[in-house]
Design a protein around this nucleic acid. Structure first.
Length: 673
DNA sequence: TAGTGTTAGATTTTT
DNA sequence: TCTAACACTA
């Protein structure tokens, strides 16, 4: 309890009835969750296995587990459940697998697999074909699933024929998933909710297991996640929800920030604690943030304050063009890096859209400033990694159509689109998966005999390889498999340069190493079964970058969304312009309010200094357009802003001169040291 | 199946 | 203006 303020202590001590912690930005909310778990175990004697903490990202879960690891010895925290919503759902499904009618080894499809499945179903479904874009259909189906609607309910509630067609597609999709023994991400929440809702025995079983539930970033929960929370908590209501409506920036993705206020409705004995003391930022930063967010009509008032220090007025750099903006940010960072002896990791550049990063990257590279760009294509989105994953998935689940389709002709085996089309038809007619369809008599009749032979041979090979999988560790087996199919040969054939092929092959070696590492259970240290391994993999979205995140002394480039939860001494908020922030597609009230909160999130990332930048004119879709400063700048009191560069139109030569000056400063410094 | 032409669409994104 | 995804052709 030491070092906690009175509100934080109240939140930690409050045990037996439902609690909502409205935790302002930088108010130490993770600390509260961690301390509360420690308190539950140490002071209240709650068994660790009865405590469940839920986050949204793997990273957040890992961090929380690490912090608890620093506070409690291993034997006292054994059995503690810290995971994402989706991992919790997956574990529940695994334990209830028979009740749910799934076979062991079921697959979890990622967004790309699910989209591919929808595309192929869309071609088949006459009522839907041509009416809907695959992406839209995917989004709609996901919405329905998040609202816990079955295909027939979706059909009944559909407003027009497009929606009705989409509902029919949803029906196809659900059937196909069942046939493939597969789930998508939404199912990982939806299926547990349905089970706990409809099966009183299972509900009681789980409510006994979950003695105490803590939910982080509660404003980001969607309808089905909230339902899962309610069902797990039950009547006892031993729930701690921690969230901040001011940082609700994911409504566009289905989050329901109103779940915060629904808590009071659903739990009449709810207690609310507000955390308003900020431990991160100087007061000018918080004043700007408070003034901005006061204009949000949709959220509860909350005023941040801190004892960190007064702080300075925020600079607003008015630049001519986006190139100029990028250059000014880069030279500014370079300048402060040397002048204040401030390491590069102290700086972050934030922007609304990823495309804004490109010019900034170019400028940073020009000045040899190290940077880390978060976002972009992740390791797991690389084709070669997805291919290898698909092979491994097929080893665990022979009926995984998405995986089969991905690698059936990779490397080439002469099984082309026509064959797959016919095969798909057979599979859909009988509601079976593709491999089963290929084995059917009908397939032998309808397919070209040579191709059919190829196909069955390949399937035989898969089966044989599968039966050998148990004999050695998964990574080892995969190494052999990739050599057997001559994947490297395939890469060389695909790539123009030998170097590119090498690089992709190296990615695979990294993946194999990673596979080896994660093939053990986090708690027990025992090695995972193939099925467990594959399922764990499909949820671990990112290559563990913890060493890079902290150790690399580099400027961080992030979108405003990606910056949530992070903090930096010096923050640059770029593109403070109308139509960029707020974004042009977000003019209606709700969305505008979310844009404001996004800006709030950006501002509150800053610990010591905050610099806004904007341009006078920007090229947009090839057209030069005059730019107006963001209305959000006007919502901040003028005294807090120090505008620079108005009326001074720098020429390119002058800019280059600034850069050159900075460069010679570096040389001087380097010479000295 | 590689190569070329056409067209939409250009915000945020985790699991 | 740029790009990526696609449909079409040789």
């Amino acid at each position: 309890m030491q070092g906690l303020n009175p509100q934080q202590q109240a939140a930690v001590r409050h045990i037996d009835t439902p609690l909502l912690v409205l935790a302002g930005a930088g108010s130490g909310k993770t600390r509260v969750i961690v301390e509360k778990i420690v308190h539950l175990i140490e002071s209240k004697g709650t068994p660790a296995r009865g405590i469940w903490a839920v986050t949204f990202t793997n990273k957040a879960a890992r961090e929380m587990a690490e912090r608890i690891g620093q506070r409690l010895p291993a034997e006292r925290r054994r059995g503690l459940n810290i995971s994402t919503f989706h991992t919790l759902g997956l574990n529940l499904i695994r334990r209830e697998i028979r009740t749910l009618g799934l076979r062991p080894g079921f697959t979890v499809l990622d967004a790309e697999d699910s989209l591919n499945l929808i595309k192929s179903l869309l071609q088949q479904n006459e009522s839907a074909a041509g009416m809907i874009e695959p992406k839209e259909a995917q989004w709609q189906i996901s919405q329905w699933k998040n609202d816990l609607l079955t295909p027939s309910q979706a059909m009944q509630t559909s407003a027009d024929e497009v929606e009705a067609a989409c509902a029919s597609l949803y029906d196809d999709y659900a059937r196909q998933l069942t046939a493939c023994n597969a789930l998508d991400f939404d199912d990982l929440i939806k299926r547990p909710v349905e089970l706990l809702r409809d099966d009183a025995e299972a509900r009681e079983r789980w409510q006994n297991r979950v003695r105490y539930l803590l939910v982080d970033e509660y404003q980001d929960t969607n309808a089905s996640q909230y339902e899962l929370v309610r069902l797990l908590v039950g009547k006892l209501g031993r729930l701690t929800a921690v969230g901040d409506d001011h940082q609700s920036i994911y409504a566009w993705r289905g989050a329901r920030p109103e779940n915060l206020s629904h808590l009071a409705r659903d739990f009449p004995n709810l207690t609310t604690v507000k955390l308003e003391q900020n431990y991160r930022s100087v007061n000018t930063v918080l004043t700007a943030a408070n003034q901005l967010i006061a204009n949000d009509p949709t959220t509860q008032p909350k005023t941040l304050w801190s004892a960190v220090g007064p702080g300075e007025a925020h600079r607003v750099l008015v630049c001519d063009t986006a190139e100029d903006e990028a250059e000014r940010i880069a030279t500014d960072i370079l300048h402060r890096h040397f002048k204040d002896d401030s390491p590069y990791r102290n700086f972050a550049i934030l922007f609304r859209g990823n495309h804004q990063a490109r010019l900034i990257e170019q400028q940073l590279r020009k000045l040899s400033i190290p940077y880390i760009l978060t976002g972009g294509q992740s390791f797991f989105e690389r084709a070669e990694v997805k291919d290898a994953m698909a092979y491994l998935r097929l080893m665990a689940n022979p009926s995984d159509d998405a995986a089969l389709l991905r690698i059936i002709n990779t490397p080439r085996r002469g099984i082309g689109p026509t064959t797959l089309e016919r095969l798909g038809q057979i599979a859909r007619e009988r509601h079976v998966h593709l491999a089963a369809a290929a084995r059917s008599v009908t397939a032998a009749q309808r397919l070209d005999s040579r191709v059919h032979h190829q196909l069955t041979q390949f399937l035989d090979w898969l089966d044989a390889t599968r039966s050998r999988m148990d004999e050695q560790p998964a990574a080892e087996a995969m190494r052999g498999l990739l050599e057997e199919v001559d994947y490297f040969g395939y890469l060389r054939e695909q790539e123009n340069s030998a170097k590119a092929a090498e690089r992709r092959w190296t990615n695979l070696q990294d993946w194999l190493e990673w596979t080896e590492r994660i093939a053990v259970d986090n708690d027990s240290g025992e090695s995972l079964s193939l099925t467990e391994l594959v399922q764990k993999m499909s949820l671990l979205g990112i290559l563990e970058q913890k060493t890079r995140d902290q150790d690399d002394n580099a400027v961080r480039l992030l979108t405003l969304h990606a910056a949530k939860g992070l903090e930096f001494p010096h923050v640059y908020l770029s593109g403070m312009e109308e139509d960029l922030l707020p974004h042009q597609d977000c003019q209606e009230d709700d969305r505008l309010a979310e844009e404001r909160r996004l800006c709030f999130v950006g501002i509150t990332r800053a610990q010591r200094s905050l610099t806004f930048t904007l341009t006078r004119r920007r090229r947009r879709y090839g057209q030069w357009r005059d730019v107006r400063p963001s209305r959000f700048l006007e919502e901040v009191e003028a005294d807090l802003l120090r505008w620079e560069g108005i009326g001074v139109q720098k020429s390119e030569e002058e800019n280059r001169a600034t850069a050159a000056e900075a460069m010679s400063a570096i040389r001087a410094m380097l010479g000295k040291s």
